[in-house]
Computed example of a mutant assay.
Amino acid sequence: MTKQEQLKMHLYELYAHNPFVNLLQMKIEELGEGTVKLSMPVLADKHTNLYNMAHGGALASLADTAMGMACATTGKKVVTLDMNLNYIRGVECQEAIIATGTLIHNGRSTMVAEAEIVNSSRNLLVKARATFFVTGTFL
């Protein structure tokens, strides 16, 4: 088994047991080096605000997780230093939205990633960008 395959297995296992990821019902759909796709349902009893639309915090959590995982696919452990989100359109309850996290800078002490969240019709819902601090390595 290659080091990249070991890392992938480790990340699947790590995120499968993450309480916050499980609370929001995020699922890994695809995992590659420097990129990740996550899905999350938007459920009325879990992910919505008082207007029955996706809560901005749930969307921010999905984007942050996707970008952090994109960083983690390089074998580096990171924490978020700064994050910017643009909420493009309201998100109604639905089976799943998809977040794609992409690494755009892989530095020694900091990393930068972007995320896009879309619905099943591929309409852009959220665009995000974040800077992460490298705290160590996996494996």
Rank of each mutant, 00 (worst) to 15 (best):
M1T: 07
T2V: 07
T2C: 10
K3L: 12
E5M: 12
E5K: 06
E5T: 10
H10C: 06
L11M: 00
L11I: 00
E13R: 11
E13S: 08
A16L: 12
A16Q: 14
F20Y: 14
F20R: 09
V21R: 00
N22W: 13
L24A: 14
Q25P: 08
M26S: 03
G32S: 15
T35L: 12
T35Q: 14
K37E: 13
K37S: 13
K37P: 06
K37D: 09
L38W: 02
S39R: 11
P41F: 02
L43K: 10
K46F: 09
K46Q: 15
T48M: 07
T48I: 05
N49F: 07
L50K: 14
N52V: 10
M53T: 09
M53P: 07
A54L: 08
H55F: 15
H55G: 06
G56N: 10
G57R: 10
A58K: 07
L59A: 08
S61T: 14
D64N: 07
M67N: 01
G68C: 05
M69R: 02
M69F: 04
A70T: 02
A70Y: 00
A70K: 02
T74V: 06
T74Y: 00
T74S: 09
G75D: 01
G75M: 04
K76P: 07
K76Q: 05
K77H: 07
K77S: 09
K77A: 08
V79C: 04
V79D: 08
T80M: 04
L81T: 12
D82I: 06
D82R: 11
L85V: 08
N86C: 13
Y87K: 13
Y87M: 15
I88A: 05
I88G: 00
R89D: 09
G90M: 13
E92G: 14
E92N: 15
Q94Y: 08
E95Q: 14
A96I: 13
A96D: 10
I97N: 04
I98N: 07
I98K: 07
I98A: 03
A99M: 09
A99P: 03
T100Q: 14
T100K: 12
T102W: 01
L103A: 01
L103Y: 05
I104F: 03
N106H: 14
G107K: 04
G107S: 05
R108Q: 11
R108G: 14
R108F: 06
S109P: 10
A113S: 08
A113R: 02
E116A: 12
E116D: 11
I117K: 01
N119F: 01
S120I: 15
S120T: 13
S120A: 15
S121L: 14
S121M: 13
R122N: 15
L125A: 06
L125G: 10
L125E: 00
V126E: 04
V126M: 04
T131L: 03
F132T: 04
T135Q: 00
G136C: 03
G136V: 00
T137K: 11
F138C: 00
F138A: 02
